[in-house]
Nucleic acid binder design. Structure first.
Lengths: 324, 324
DNA sequence: CCTTGACCTGAAACGCGTTTCACAAATTAT
DNA sequence: ATAATTTGTGAAACGCGTTTCAGGTCAAGG
């Protein structure tokens, strides 16, 4: 395929002039500009983007690290990022990691290698110290309720939101409360667990470790929760559930077992994704898509000023429906 | 940042040798290899991937074109692609187009520009002729029930699947059938419409244009369907719905209007995504994730042999549940 | 002792667009 | 009319890793 030098030769100009035409620089006479354009047309020329990237030292691409795409939370987050990226003419490179730490670091390595200009972590399993090694290479944004000031972060206040849910259940007369979390190893889950334990103490209720169910991520996991529930001798009267999907699965599975919500037990979850609305699930809204667009904006801000490191907190909102 | 020449200088070898070490070529003495490795370590060197891309003329990245990420169908498809891509060490670049034709073509332009080695279209709005202009530039895979042989394609047999749904409803005694489709302009919808019209004729039922409802994509659209249904003087006894999400929305909204499924009307949809299972929706399974992985495999096949252009058809399966 | 092939190494060319610098020509300002 | 800009253009350097080619060494085979 033709390159810029050939265009220059055929159009009878220098490569610099061709480059200027390509980039709409001023200071090119219309005569030469036309000649170049005509030649480009004739040879069906198209710029080699890799050469541009190499030359400019940047690619206008950012990496997005997420465990899985096929989950409403992450696909909403990703969509928020993608919409904002599009506005800024930035391309997204996906790193679906399934929480594999090496794959998470892979994104950072690609940042070092100039494949991408920055990285947005939608979630991560890798230790924070390891991230720190890559600080300063390029803008890095974390979608998490961060304790650190090294990287800009975007999230809701997880503990606060969790307490909101707990308090709501308590206000409705529930004291025997079980919780369903995602990855128990995750920092969020740790915080939520602590908040739960504390709250139980405050209301003078026994803290039952068995009432913390982990690995609740998808609709299907709701069945697992009900199975466990059925086994318990002592039953909770309410569940605080990490996300709408699981809550939906629980409610459906409850019905299969002739249990009704909220009569047999109440359910409140997080997200306020469409499914919670149609099933009448009381939920705490997490502005997932905005989280994504804010994350991208934080990336932009940091790319303008590498010192930038804000902690962006978006508000949550309780939607009272019929599951409590 | 250091480059390969500096490493070579400090290690006292040639750049070729450094390159060989970097690429694990044989024929490098251990002494020199160690020296290079040590120097790389010392300078904290990391390869400039853009230079590699430029030099190799390829990037090991493929573009994925889809209208929206935040929809179970597309995120499942994308996940299938992503998993397979990971196995092949290929990175994905996202093109979320919202069915904007220019953005779809943008992906092809990036292919021309060597940003990506190939393109997978999860869905498209752009005319086929326009795609044809880009044929031969690089592997291009279409996820659609294609009539053409120019590009490899991956899909289910849409008309057949649609007829399966129609026949099932008929076999259950339904004749007054309405259908809910996605983008009416899409080729799939056109085919389905034709199949619907034909089937109505076969069973001697009047073809009612009003009973074809378009723009049914998300859960929320289910409400719209029910609103229309309530307006109709003559009511259908069954709906064939383009995807589970809409069916779920319909069933929920039906309940809000004191209608019960399948008593007031039956519903059968497509996808067999988790939501259909928990809501007991009779559905025709589309192996969405496999569609994605097959699409990626077709990309790989075509990248090995540019002449490759198979039409891959995956089977569908009817899941009888309680909505018919 | 000679041939052959495996092993090792470096110089140079290649992929290709951008940008800086120097300089000339045409305007505008003084 | 002269100085100061603005406009227009090209040569050359730059970003950087890969690959080809030619040449050399050394051990095994005949």
């Amino acid at each position: 395929m033709a390159n810029i030098r050939e265009i220059a030769r055929l159009a009878g100009v220098s490569v610099s002039t061709v480059s200027r035409v390509l980039n709409n620089h001023p200071y090119v006479s219309t005569a030469k500009k036309d000649a170049v354009l005509k030649t480009i047309e004739k040879l069906d020329y198209s710029r080699n983007i890799n050469a541009v990237h190499l030359s400019q030292g940047k690619t206008n691409m950012v990496g997005v690290v997420l465990p899985t795409i096929n989950h409403p939370y992450f696909s909403a987050l990703l969509e928020g990022i993608a919409e904002e990226a599009m506005k800024h003419n930035v391309q997204l490179v996906l790193f679906q990691t399934d929480y594999n730490q090496d794959k998470e670091l892979e994104a950072l390595e690609q940042l070092r290698g100039h494949l991408i200009d920055g990285v947005i972590f939608c979630s991560r399993a890798v230790q924070f110290d390891l991230l720190l090694n890559y600080k300063g290479i390029g803008p890095t944004v974390l979608c998490e309720d961060a304790d650190q000031q090294e990287f800009p972060s975007v999230s809701i206040k997880h503990v606060e939101a969790f307490n909101l849910g707990l308090d709501y259940l308590v206000s409705k007369g529930h004291e025997k409360i079980a919780i369903c979390l995602g990855r128990l190893e995750g920092t969020n889950s740790q915080k939520r667990k602590a908040a739960y334990e504390k709250k139980m103490k405050v209301i003078g209720e026994k803290f039952r470790r068995e009432w913390i169910i982990g690995q609740c991520l998808m609709i299907e996991d709701g069945k697992k929760v009900i199975d466990e529930y059925l086994e318990w001798d002592e039953k909770p009267t309410a569940f605080l559930v990490g996300n709408d999907q699981v809550a939906a699965g629980m409610i459906a599975e409850a019905k299969n077992n002739e249990l009704t919500v909220p009569e047999d037990f109440a359910v409140i979850s997080f997200d306020n994704h469409p499914i919670s609305k149609i099933l009448g699930i009381t939920t705490i809204e997490i502005p997932t898509k905005q989280l994504g667009s804010s994350a991208f904006m934080a990336y932009i801000d940091q790319s303008k000023d590498i010192e930038y490191s804000d902690k962006i907190v978006l508000p949550v909102k309780l939607w009272e429906r019929k599951s409590v």
